[in-house]
Design a protein around this nucleic acid. Sequence first.
DNA 1: GTTTATGCAAATTCTTTGCAATACT
DNA 2: AGTATTGCAAAGAATTTGCATAAAC
Lengths: 145, 145
Amino acid sequence: MNVEETLKKVGLRLTDTRKAVLSLFIDANKALSHSDLEEKLADCDKVTLYRTLSSFLEKDLIHKIVNPDGVAFFALCKHHEHTHHAHTHLHNHGHFVCKICKETRCIEDFEIEIPTNLLLNSQIDEISVVLQGTCSNCIKIQNRV
Amino acid sequence: MNVEETLKKVGLRLTDTRKAVLSLFIDANKALSHSDLEEKLADCDKVTLYRTLSSFLEKDLIHKIVNPDGVAFFALCKHHEHTHHAHTHLHNHGHFVCKICKETRCIEDFEIEIPTNLLLNSQIDEISVVLQGTCSNCIKIQNRV
DNA sequence: GTTTATGCAAATTCTTTGCAATACT
DNA sequence: AGTATTGCAAAGAATTTGCATAAAC
């Protein structure tokens, strides 16, 4: 997955911040919050980061996960790794948030079926599934103490 | 479901604000945000409302649903309507949020099974399932225009 | 050259904290 | 009487907006 090609494909100008942020998402392989990015890109203005995240959301490069504390995390949309372009896609996979280290990951294997029998007259656009608990790493650390 | 009995049962003092807020939750039969309460209880200080919500959360009278915009909503925990007291309970039922009118409801019939095969070494405490879309009422209004 | 993005300051919104006055048991 | 709760002011955190400068196309 090439950073510059991806940005061009969705019609965003190639700026240093956008290239850096997209690289971070690709390398991270997990969800990142605004403050994660701010920390990693210390010389970048926080407002620019907010705007970068907005433009990525708008172009469907990333999706937003709000954890149970109300903190927003963002993760790459997997469909951009493939050549085909699914335009209206539901993010109906699960997410796991560790309440200790706050690490947030997509669980691609866990997909929720929309309950079409319920909510008969409503239209569903988006699904958010967040599992909160303690990650394996933090359990290990707890057991050591 | 009696307001005063319920408050006593969980060990909270009977104050005007608590009685009013609990009544609103019972009558509303849907999730309410802090600003919903502020609007309905105009003569009550907003800080008191924050603290009321905290105490209700702590006593498991209500649960918190963070909608995809990051706005917190709160809804009654159903187990308090019965006499038996489940102390550690997962809120693994779904929630529906209308992106237009922001109405938020529990969908009690829609329960998510925790995927025990995934996340083998992690511990899951809480599940949040939020479906976002357009509610039947807002669809009707759209069609009229 | 035209359009879009950035950086800074400032405004807004949401939430928490400290403390004296008040209400509950 | 003793303890918990309230209301107000103020602090803090998260996010948005306006605008001049700078960078991308």
